[in-house]
Amino acid sequence: MAADVDPAWVARCVAPDPLALPLGARFLAALADRVGAEPGVVDAVLVAPPPAAGPGLELVPAQVDHPRVARARLHRTDVRVWTTPDGAGVLVLGRGVAGRAEVSVEVDPAARGRGLGTALVAAAPALVPGGGPLWAQVAPANTASLRAFLAAGYRPVCAEVLFGP
């Protein structure tokens, strides 16, 4: 946990079940009260497989006004954006928690169900400057996104909740 709270308080709160309780609603609400910020969604955190030689998908660097890009800019720095030539897919890379490289994607509803999401997330590791690990946070309820990341070889590492306004 990365929060300015007393570690002894955290230990007492999660002692009965240190694997489940840190992401439970009661603990997150208590933590929110202590830090003065609202908890977001509990996300699965995944790490990408090593990059292929190239993206393997035609992507165009883009400046787009898209909700996925706006959300990334709230939580990340050094945000860069690519789209597929037809604009059906958006891929966003940026630096997030602890400076880690993070990816998010969006597929236009009309283009869903044909593997574009999996192709986008499979292409992303090759776009990370200097290589290095690429991370993704996925809401487990977003089953289409979770399936795309898993199909592209991303591996679950942990879960996290980001706090904010």
Rank of each mutant, 00 (worst) to 15 (best):
Ala20Lys: 09
Leu21His: 00
Pro22Asn: 09
Pro22Ala: 03
Gly24Met: 03
Gly24Cys: 09
Gly24Gln: 04
Phe27Arg: 09
Leu28Gln: 11
Leu28Tyr: 11
Ala29His: 02
Ala29Gln: 13
Ala30Asp: 14
Ala30Ser: 10
Ala30Arg: 06
Ala30Gln: 13
Leu31Asp: 01
Leu31Glu: 09
Asp33Asn: 01
Asp33His: 06
Arg34Ala: 11
Arg34Phe: 05
Gly36Lys: 03
Glu38Leu: 07
Glu38Ser: 09
Pro39Lys: 01
Gly40Glu: 10
Gly40Ala: 12
Val41Met: 08
Val42Phe: 07
Val47Lys: 07
Val47Leu: 06
Pro49Lys: 11
Pro49Tyr: 02
Pro51Ser: 02
Ala52Thr: 08
Ala53Trp: 00
Pro55Val: 02
Gly56Phe: 03
Gly56His: 03
Glu58His: 02
Leu59Lys: 08
Val60Phe: 04
Pro61Trp: 13
Pro61Ser: 12
Ala62Tyr: 01
Asp65Leu: 14
His66Pro: 14
Pro67Gly: 15
Pro67Arg: 13
Val69Pro: 13
Ala72Tyr: 01
Ala72Pro: 09
Arg73Cys: 13
Arg73Asp: 07
Arg73Ser: 02
Leu74Gln: 15
His75Ser: 15
Asp78Arg: 13
Asp78Thr: 07
Val79His: 15
Arg80Asp: 08
Arg80Ser: 12
Trp82Met: 04
Trp82His: 10
Thr83Ile: 12
Thr84Ile: 09
Pro85Val: 11
